[in-house]
Design a protein around this nucleic acid. Structure first.
Lengths: 173, 173
DNA sequence: TTGCCAACTGGGGTGACCCTCCACTTATGC
DNA sequence: GCATAAGTGGAGGGTCACCCCAGTTGGCAA
């Protein structure tokens, strides 16, 4: 990648971060390009789809969430770790504008999706081995549920409360 | 209302129903006007906001859901009635394109929102009297949760399964 | 039946958006 | 330095929501 291309890529990403934080996942791509000081064609070459831009913007945050999952995996109560991580995910999704929408409209080959599913899977396996998860519940169900809660709330407190309520059914009777 | 205005109103509503069923809540208002055979200004006069058009389109369906709530209120197990109705709501929201989005972005004075909250409240009160609802759970939480599940699923089976899972926490320990 | 007028209409304008093409510029390897 | 491939952005086409306003028409009163 040429140095000027790299510079523009970074400028676009920074502008996108600011604009998406302000206006959410359907922020204007033209405004992002304008703020970055590049033409809209340049934005579209670096990020052919809106989704690809969203992925790039949220990549760091998703990585941090995965790191948190690895940290929680070392805790004693694996059932609690799974629920805690999912609640954390709900809160981040609700308060980080655009993140939840981005995760909802994601496709199976998206890197964010893959990273989160793997992190979730690891915690899930541990929790299942500890007998802390009901039969018939899989990790996709839980991620969908948590994404759903994120979508429907804007407030961290609401997200945490609703996620905890929704995840009550995870534990066996 | 003049006869021609009434006729146009009905034409727009019919076109909107078809188009929203095909393209969801963010269907093109211009296409709806075109299909209805009226100018876009006429559509905007009858329905000043997208939300007002969505409300009109989904009014009948919401009314049917409220009727279902009244029917369920006469059943023996009030706790089960509440959960059944909420699952039903989740399935309708997931399978009726645009309904869930419409309910999410609703304001407090929307007629659909008011109708559903009242219906939910009635079932909730009965369930609470029967001791079938955990402390600290209110009807808004449940409606938000169910709307969230609707948003995140497209398939009736998925919606029902996730709603049932999410509502597991409603019952007292 | 006729004529009036308020209610109603829709074409067209404005500004915003997404996305693509293509003539131009520039960084980089030789 | 220079050739050239990589990179650029302005302009333009198509779509959209929304609004203005000159023209039309339904319904009522005389």
């Amino acid at each position: 990648m040429r140095a000027d291309a790299r510079r523009n890529y970074d400028l676009i990403l920074a502008a996108a971060e600011a604009e998406i934080a302000k206006s959410g996942a359907d922020a204007s791509l033209e405004k992002i390009a304008r703020d970055a000081g590049v033409g809209s064609a340049t934005l579209h070459r670096h990020f052919p789809t809106r989704q690809s831009l969203l992925e790039a913007v949220f990549h760091d945050r998703v990585e941090a969430l995965c790191a948190e999952a690895r940290r929680l995996a070392t805790s004693a109560d694996h059932g609690q770790a799974l629920v805690d991580w999912l609640c954390d995910l709900a809160v981040h999704g609700a308060t980080t504008r655009g993140l939840a929408e981005s995760l909802l409209h994601t496709s199976a080959d998206s890197s964010c999706e893959v990273m989160l599913r793997e992190a979730g899977n690891d915690l899930m396996r541990l929790a299942q081995e500890a007998g802390a998860v009901r039969e018939g519940v899989d990790v996709d169900d839980l991620l969908t549920l948590v994404t759903a809660v994120s979508l429907a709330t804007r407030d961290a407190g609401d997200a945490a409360r609703l996620a905890a309520l929704a995840l009550e059914g995870v534990r066996p009777r």
